[in-house]
Every structure is written in C-alpha cells, then in structure tokens.
C-alpha cells in the first residue's frame, strides 16, 4: 500500500466538493480518475499532494501523513503536471532542470544536469533541448512538462487531463509513455481524464466519481455500461473492438 486516502473531504467555502473519498494505490499502477465535469476529479488530484488542503481525512504515503510534510519534501515524492503549461521564453532544458528545484540546495550539480539529460533522451526531446517553450507545439510542451515532473524523481506522478489539448497521435504517445515510465520505474501515476476510451486503453485501475464521492473503483471490470450510465447520466454500451474495451454512447 503506497498511497492511501482515507475519508478525504474538501469544500470551497461552504460548498462541499469531495466527501469521504477513500482508496489506495500500489506502485506500478496507472490509475484513471473518471467522472463528469465538476465532480471533483481535479480537486481530488490536488488534495493528494497538498496543493489543496483537505478539510477532512488523511493522505498517507508509505504510512506518512502527506499533509504534515513540508512542501519541498512532498515535491521530492510527488510530481504534478498541470493541465496547462505556460509557454514562456525558457529553453526545454532549463524548464526540465527546474524540476530539480526540490533537490537543489545552493546551486545545481552535475547530477542534476545528468538526470535532466537522461530524461530528455528518454523522452526523445534531446533535439528540442535548446528550443524555447514559446516556439513549441502543444504535444512537445506536454512532453516537456512530463519530463520536468520526472526529473523530480517522484514515486507518485499526478497528471491533470494530460491529453486534453493534444491530437490523436500525441494522445497515444503521451499516455503510452506514461505507462512505460510507470512500469520501468515502478512508480504510481494518477490522471484525471475525460476520454473514457483512452483511459480504458492505457490505465490499469479506474476510479469513477459521482457527486464528490467514489461510485466505483477497481480494474477494467468496474467500467461497465451501468456504472458509466449512472455516473455520466448518458446511456452507453461497452463493447470489445480489436481487443480493447470501447465505450459507445447509445444516443
């Protein structure tokens, strides 16, 4: 049991968003958090690394309370890829190097540079290393953001809708990459996602959320036509197509 949530609740002012969310994640797992807009997917993701502080419940990482850890200590364990990456006038190399921030003491070391270099090569970004972010495509930008998260050497990777602004090829590439990294490095990844078919194709476990609480959680078998119909309020069928489970709306 690496990451464990117990009864996490969160509200903006008096308006409750999350209510008693509990689940656990093992290393090696790629988890998709699914549910309609406004159900609290992103809020849940942000509660995991204390970007938001839950009003109730606890988040444990290897039995340690995440909410009691310092911000740099959390950043050494968990990395977060936000939905939008700012296209600033920084080179890809410097942007990725910034991911070493939680480990940097007074100045950067050879090891920081070596890790940055290794990740850039791993993600096939070497050719773009000295290009400015404001000259990159959406797919390249997203890969740089993931590279920045990976040089943090996290044990948990959090991704907020990592494919929302990408084309089909980039969607497949980015999610394939995350899955490979999860397997290679035995880390856990959690992502929020709107595209059910993409999630079914790449994730190992699924958390279906409804009204700020978990409706169903588990392997691919929990993503049933009934569950989706109930969570999204849209009748669907789930069919097999070329070995993949595919969700098709019946409207």
């Amino acid at each position: 049991m690496m990451l464990e949530l117990d009864g996490v609740g969160f509200g903006y002012r008096s308006h409750p968003v999350l209510d008693g969310v509990s689940f656990s994640v093992e290393p090696d797992e790629f988890v998709a958090i699914l549910g309609p807009n406004g159900v609290g997917k992103t809020t849940l993701l942000r509660c995991l690394n204390a970007l938001l502080r839950p009003g109730a419940g606890s988040v444990l990482l290897d039995g340690r309370e995440v909410l009691a850890m310092s911000r740099p200590a959390i950043a050494r364990e968990m990395a977060y890829v936000s939905q939008r990456t700012e296209p600033t006038r920084m080179t890809a190399f410097d942007t990725v190097l910034l991911g070493r921030r939680p480990h940097i003491g007074f100045g950067i070391t050879g090891r920081d540079l070596a890790i940055t270099e290794a990740i850039l090569r791993r993600l096939d970004l070497s050719a773009l290393a000295l290009r400015y972010l404001d000259e990159m495509s959406g797919g390249e930008l997203q890969k740089v953001a993931i590279a920045r998260a990976l040089v943090q050497e996290p044990r948990v990777l959090l991704l907020d809708e990592p494919t929302s602004s990408l084309d089909l090829k980039n969607q497949l590439e980015i999610l394939g990459l995350v899955r490979e990294i999860v397997r290679e490095h035995r880390i856990a990844a959690l992502m929020t996602m709107h595209d059910l078919n993409l999630a079914l194709r790449f994730a190992d476990r699924f958390i279906l959320m409804k009204e700020g609480a978990i409706h169903a959680a588990g392997g691919p078998e929990v993503v049933t036509a009934e569950a989706i119909g109930s969570v999204y309020g849209v009748p669907v069928t789930v069919e097999q197509c070329r070995g993949c489970r595919v969700v098709v709306p019946c409207v």
Binding site: N49, L51, S70, R71, P72, A73, I74, A75, R76, M78, A79, Y80, S82, R84, T85, E86, T88, M90, D94, T95, L98, G99, R101, P102, I104, A145, R148, Q152, L158
Partner: peptide
Amino acid sequence: RWDYNALDAGDETARSLGVH
C-alpha cells in the same frame, strides 16, 4: 532565482515543485 523560475511556470506548478 529558481523560485522565480518556478513562479514563471505558474503558481500551481511552482507549488508542486515545493516552492511557497
């Protein structure tokens, strides 16, 4: 300087990088 670089990447990213 690294904190300012982190802020340039957006508040959310900065905080996830351990920057207050």
